[in-house]
Amino acid sequence: MSLDVDAGHRTRTLPSNQRRHARPPGPRRLLSWLDLRAAPYFFVSPYFVLFAIFGIFPLIFTLWVSLHDWQLAGDKTFIGLENYTELLADDKFWNSVVNTVGIFVIATVPQLVLALLLASALNKRLRGRLVLRLSVLAPLITSVVAVAVVFTQLYGRDYGLVNWLLGLFGVEPIHWQNAAWTSWIAIATMVDWRWTGYNAIIYLAAMQTIPKDLYEAAAIDGASPRRQFWGITVPLLKPTIIFTVIVSTIGGFTLFAEPVMFGSGLMTGGTTGQFQTVAMFIVKEGFRDFQYGYAAAAAWILFLLILISALINFALVRGIGRSR
């Protein structure tokens, strides 16, 4: 914590033996100690107090609830880890995990690659660069529900634009909600439409911190632009890429609004749960079926899944650029 360093620095400027003798005795000494040692903690405490109330407490309380058969306005019995064992054997839960991972992969991989290419294009000298840069951010400031509503209409079975376009090529109308892969594609496009520009802007900002002389030196050595991109840009963007991958992982694993809107506001995610994500599963168990304990256990498993997959992704991404 930077705070510790700062406090330590201030105290350390005084020679230690002098400090010991110069300290006035009694309450003043206590006050001065408080001023030096405790005050910084006091000043940063609002964040940590709020974090404790809205972060740590719910986390611990959820853990506590997850160890019970906890019915809303009903019985509560301590059952230990039974919710977890039941959950790990629940097809529906694993179905939602598979859906979440599936949508995450087909949404995030193209999204980040596209964002990287987009950023690289925007980093060039272009006419109306500012307008272009701002316009890639526009999807981000639209409401996610509005995006989902519009896309859901585009993907409509009987009167949707996408099916009309496909119909021009003789393709039979697709009921996008009906099969897993069609619904995943539809949801992935919603996610990508909204988040590609955001990631592109982050990459762009990082690209602009790369010193120009590196490119000049590379150009003098005869490196092609492609080579420069993979040899200079990507390795130097690595911390930024790691950041976006972790943020996308968290976002992807908690995906909720898009599939809910795509499924007409229901938590079931299609008639056979084709696109029910883990977040939807949790809400369905907790707030439709009123099984709080079971939902809490699912929330904890989701937390662990995010942690694990963020670590895996971190390990994977850390490797990029190394071989080149």
């Binding site: 009921h175 009906n178 099969a179 079931t268 299609g270 008639t271 056979t272 084709q274 439709r288």
Partner: peptide, 16 residues
Amino acid sequence: KAAVEEVLVGADQGSV
């Protein structure tokens, strides 16, 4: 009710 009707809708629409 919600769970079983989901199956009915699914069968009607072809996913079941």
